[in-house]
Simulated scan of single mutants.
Amino acid sequence: MSGHSKWHNIQHRKGRQDAARGKIFTKVTKEIMLAAKAGGGDPTGNNRLKSAIEAAKAVNLPKDKIETAIKKGTGELAAEAIEEVMYEGYGPGGVAILIDAATDNKNRTVAEVRHILSKGGGSMGASGCVAWMFDKKGVLAFPKDEHSDEELLEIGLEAGAEDIVDDGETWQIQCAPEDFTAVREAFVSAGIEPAESEITMIPQNTVAVDKETGLKLLKLYDALDENEDVQNVYANFDLPDELLAEMQD
């Protein structure tokens, strides 16, 4: 399961991810703060912040809360000290899992993540054990019934896109993180708004799992995603078609 997999798209449509509005707001607010802290409060020169603001607007985070989060990130306003941390581990079937967290208490968060992984049939791994299996990429998704791959490539390649991937119902344009803003703006300027766009972690290879293992992995994924400190979960498994079909019913 990559940042944009068939499961991700189903999950997004059904609104399963971050079902509670409060949790959505907490996650996007933390990302704005971290982005502003890392690269400054001006989104025109901070691709990560620009992406974070777009994600916040997509879930209707009020403008004043966005501005406050930016100021907290830059230190203009007082705020709790939030740190970024990436945990690595394994799920059922030996699937590689990356867990991106933002926390004010690393001891608490690592203990909770370790417990969730263990309870879900997985385990925490050492730093570097699976991160090498993933590449950080900008990803823009476009409905296949609205656009051809030739059309998208013609626009994307000139702006810095690296590849286009068939992801079932969508085409995925992939690019280097530093080219994400330029690629996205090229499509918007051409009158084509991506259905989704983000900087994410893409697995270099995926592992096919059976239905039983897939169900266990989805349960583990949901448990991790429900933790208040977990921002994103990335994994390298492919669900069987029969399970995907059941989830769409």
Rank of each mutant, 00 (worst) to 15 (best):
A38L: 15
K219G: 15
M86Y: 08
G41D: 00
K144R: 07
M133S: 13
A182P: 08
E198F: 13
T200V: 09
A131P: 00
R114N: 14
Q248W: 04
G191E: 11
A56T: 03
G39E: 12
A101M: 06
N236C: 14
T26E: 12
N105I: 09
I99R: 04
Y90V: 09
P143A: 10
K14M: 13
N205C: 04
L98V: 06
R21P: 03
D229I: 09
I99C: 04
Q204K: 15
T68E: 12
S5H: 14
N46W: 14
I99M: 11
P203Y: 01
K137S: 14
I164F: 08
H147G: 04
F142G: 01
A79L: 03
N47R: 08
G160S: 06
D210F: 06
L217T: 01
R16A: 07
I53C: 08
V113L: 04
T103S: 11
V95S: 05
A159I: 12
M33Y: 00
G138W: 12
L224R: 04
N236A: 14
A102Q: 11
E162L: 15
E154A: 12
A223D: 15
A208S: 02
E76F: 11
D249S: 05
I116R: 14
T181R: 09
V130W: 01
R13N: 08
A96R: 12
G75E: 01
I164R: 02
E112C: 07
I199H: 03
V139T: 05
D238P: 03
S197Y: 11
L77F: 12
A223N: 15
V85I: 09
N227G: 02
I82W: 04
H12L: 10
E146T: 06
W171G: 01
T103Y: 06
P203M: 01
G22L: 13
A161T: 04
A56S: 15
K65F: 02
L220Y: 07
E83C: 04
M86R: 04
V139Q: 06
P62E: 05
N227R: 09
N236S: 09
S2M: 10
R21F: 05
N205W: 05
L239A: 08
E246F: 09
T109M: 11
E80M: 02
G91W: 10
K219Q: 15
I155W: 11
D104Q: 06
T44I: 02
V95G: 05
K63V: 03
A102R: 14
I173K: 07
I155V: 12
E246G: 07
P240K: 14
E76Q: 14
N60M: 13
E150F: 12
E54Q: 10
Q248E: 14
T44H: 13
E185C: 05
V230I: 02
R16H: 04
T206G: 01
E242M: 05
C175F: 07
R13P: 02
I116Y: 13
S118G: 07
N46R: 12
L215R: 09
G214H: 03
E196D: 14
G121A: 03
V183F: 08
K219A: 15
V130A: 08
E193N: 07
K30C: 03
N105M: 07
E80Q: 12
H115F: 08
